[in-house]
Amino acid sequence: TFELKGKVGKVVKIAEDHYLVEVEGDKWIAYSDEKLSLGDRVMVVDVDGLKLKAKRIP
């Protein structure tokens, strides 16, 4: 999973306390310091076990 750092994905679902992000065809649980919206493009900035930390990108 460490190779996911720096990869770009898309928010495909918003849950109460996390997001579901699709990166290279796989879906991952993600969290972010900022509020994300459905369809936002994100970059993986860190990997915490099986969770990704994501940041919105333009």
Rank of each mutant, 00 (worst) to 15 (best):
1 T>C: 15
1 T>R: 15
1 T>H: 15
1 T>M: 15
1 T>P: 15
1 T>L: 14
1 T>F: 15
1 T>I: 15
1 T>N: 15
1 T>D: 15
2 F>R: 05
2 F>M: 15
2 F>A: 15
2 F>C: 15
2 F>N: 15
3 E>T: 02
3 E>F: 06
3 E>P: 15
3 E>K: 02
3 E>L: 04
4 L>D: 08
4 L>H: 03
4 L>A: 05
4 L>Q: 09
4 L>P: 15
4 L>R: 02
4 L>K: 06
5 K>L: 15
5 K>N: 15
5 K>A: 14
5 K>P: 14
5 K>Q: 15
5 K>D: 15
5 K>V: 15
6 G>S: 02
6 G>D: 08
6 G>I: 01
6 G>A: 02
6 G>Y: 02
6 G>V: 01
6 G>W: 03
6 G>F: 03
7 K>M: 05
7 K>A: 07
7 K>L: 05
7 K>P: 02
7 K>V: 02
7 K>C: 08
7 K>G: 04
7 K>F: 03
7 K>W: 03
7 K>N: 04
8 V>P: 05
8 V>H: 11
8 V>G: 05
8 V>R: 06
8 V>C: 12
8 V>A: 08
8 V>M: 11
8 V>N: 07
9 G>Y: 02
9 G>K: 00
9 G>M: 05
9 G>Q: 00
9 G>F: 05
9 G>A: 08
9 G>D: 00
9 G>R: 00
9 G>S: 01
9 G>C: 06
9 G>P: 00
10 K>M: 12
10 K>W: 13
10 K>L: 13
10 K>Y: 11
10 K>S: 13
11 V>I: 07
11 V>M: 02
11 V>R: 00
11 V>Y: 00
12 V>L: 13
12 V>E: 05
12 V>H: 05
12 V>N: 04
12 V>T: 09
12 V>F: 09
13 K>P: 00
13 K>H: 10
13 K>R: 10
13 K>Y: 11
14 I>Q: 08
14 I>V: 14
14 I>N: 05
14 I>M: 10
14 I>W: 07
14 I>L: 14
14 I>E: 11
14 I>C: 12
15 A>P: 03
15 A>E: 12
15 A>M: 13
15 A>R: 13
15 A>S: 12
16 E>M: 13
16 E>N: 12
16 E>H: 12
16 E>T: 09
16 E>Q: 11
16 E>C: 11
16 E>F: 13
16 E>S: 12
16 E>W: 12
16 E>Y: 13
17 D>G: 11
17 D>M: 09
17 D>W: 10
18 H>C: 10
18 H>D: 10
18 H>E: 12
18 H>K: 09
18 H>P: 00
19 Y>T: 05
19 Y>C: 07
19 Y>E: 01
19 Y>L: 06
19 Y>M: 07
19 Y>I: 07
19 Y>W: 06
19 Y>K: 01
20 L>P: 00
20 L>R: 04
20 L>I: 12
20 L>G: 04
20 L>F: 12
21 V>K: 00
21 V>T: 02
21 V>M: 08
21 V>Y: 00
21 V>W: 00
21 V>A: 03
21 V>L: 11
21 V>P: 00
22 E>W: 07
22 E>S: 08
22 E>Y: 06
22 E>N: 08
22 E>P: 00
22 E>I: 11
22 E>K: 08
23 V>Y: 02
23 V>K: 01
23 V>D: 02
23 V>I: 15
23 V>Q: 02
23 V>S: 03
23 V>P: 00
23 V>N: 02
23 V>F: 05
23 V>L: 13
24 E>G: 06
24 E>T: 05
24 E>N: 07
24 E>H: 06
24 E>R: 03
24 E>A: 08
24 E>K: 04
25 G>I: 04
25 G>H: 09
25 G>T: 07
25 G>C: 10
26 D>T: 14
26 D>Y: 14
26 D>N: 14
26 D>Q: 14
26 D>I: 14
27 K>Q: 12
27 K>F: 09
27 K>G: 08
28 W>G: 01
28 W>I: 03
28 W>H: 07
28 W>M: 03
28 W>R: 03
28 W>Q: 02
28 W>L: 03
28 W>S: 02
28 W>A: 03
29 I>K: 09
29 I>S: 12
29 I>T: 10
29 I>L: 13
29 I>Q: 14
29 I>R: 09
29 I>H: 13
30 A>R: 00
30 A>Y: 01
30 A>L: 03
30 A>F: 01
30 A>D: 00
30 A>I: 04
30 A>S: 11
31 Y>C: 14
31 Y>P: 01
31 Y>D: 10
31 Y>A: 09
32 S>G: 05
32 S>T: 04
32 S>D: 02
33 D>Y: 07
33 D>W: 05
33 D>T: 06
33 D>N: 07
33 D>R: 05
33 D>L: 06
34 E>H: 07
34 E>K: 04
34 E>T: 06
34 E>I: 04
34 E>F: 04
34 E>L: 04
34 E>D: 15
34 E>S: 07
35 K>F: 11
35 K>Y: 10
35 K>C: 13
35 K>A: 13
35 K>D: 12
35 K>V: 13
35 K>H: 11
36 L>K: 00
36 L>G: 00
36 L>W: 10
36 L>N: 01
36 L>V: 04
37 S>C: 13
37 S>R: 11
37 S>T: 13
37 S>H: 13
37 S>Q: 12
37 S>A: 12
37 S>I: 13
38 L>K: 08
38 L>W: 07
38 L>V: 13
38 L>I: 11
38 L>G: 03
38 L>Q: 08
39 G>F: 11
39 G>P: 01
39 G>S: 09
39 G>I: 03
39 G>A: 09
39 G>L: 10
39 G>R: 06
40 D>R: 01
40 D>K: 01
40 D>T: 05
40 D>I: 04
40 D>N: 06
41 R>E: 14
41 R>W: 14
41 R>L: 14
41 R>I: 13
41 R>M: 14
41 R>F: 15
41 R>V: 13
42 V>M: 05
42 V>C: 08
42 V>W: 01
42 V>K: 00
42 V>G: 00
42 V>P: 00
42 V>T: 02
43 M>A: 06
43 M>L: 10
43 M>I: 13
43 M>C: 11
43 M>R: 04
43 M>P: 00
44 V>P: 01
44 V>R: 00
44 V>W: 02
44 V>A: 02
44 V>M: 05
44 V>E: 00
45 V>F: 03
45 V>A: 05
45 V>I: 13
45 V>E: 08
45 V>M: 07
45 V>K: 02
45 V>N: 03
45 V>C: 07
46 D>E: 11
46 D>G: 06
46 D>L: 04
46 D>Q: 04
46 D>I: 02
47 V>P: 02
47 V>E: 04
47 V>F: 12
47 V>W: 09
47 V>Y: 07
47 V>C: 08
47 V>S: 07
47 V>A: 07
48 D>W: 08
48 D>M: 09
48 D>H: 08
48 D>C: 13
48 D>F: 11
48 D>I: 14
49 G>H: 06
49 G>D: 07
49 G>I: 03
49 G>Y: 03
49 G>L: 03
49 G>V: 04
50 L>M: 14
50 L>G: 08
50 L>W: 14
50 L>K: 09
50 L>Q: 10
50 L>D: 15
51 K>H: 08
51 K>Q: 07
52 L>K: 01
52 L>S: 01
52 L>F: 03
52 L>Q: 01
52 L>M: 04
52 L>G: 01
52 L>R: 01
53 K>I: 03
53 K>G: 03
53 K>V: 03
53 K>C: 06
54 A>L: 15
54 A>N: 01
54 A>K: 01
54 A>S: 03
55 K>E: 14
55 K>T: 08
55 K>F: 04
55 K>V: 11
56 R>C: 04
56 R>A: 06
56 R>H: 06
56 R>M: 06
56 R>E: 02
56 R>I: 06
56 R>W: 10
57 I>W: 12
57 I>R: 03
57 I>H: 10
57 I>F: 10
57 I>Q: 07
57 I>S: 05
58 P>H: 12
58 P>D: 13
58 P>Q: 11
58 P>K: 06
58 P>F: 09
58 P>R: 05
58 P>N: 10
58 P>C: 14
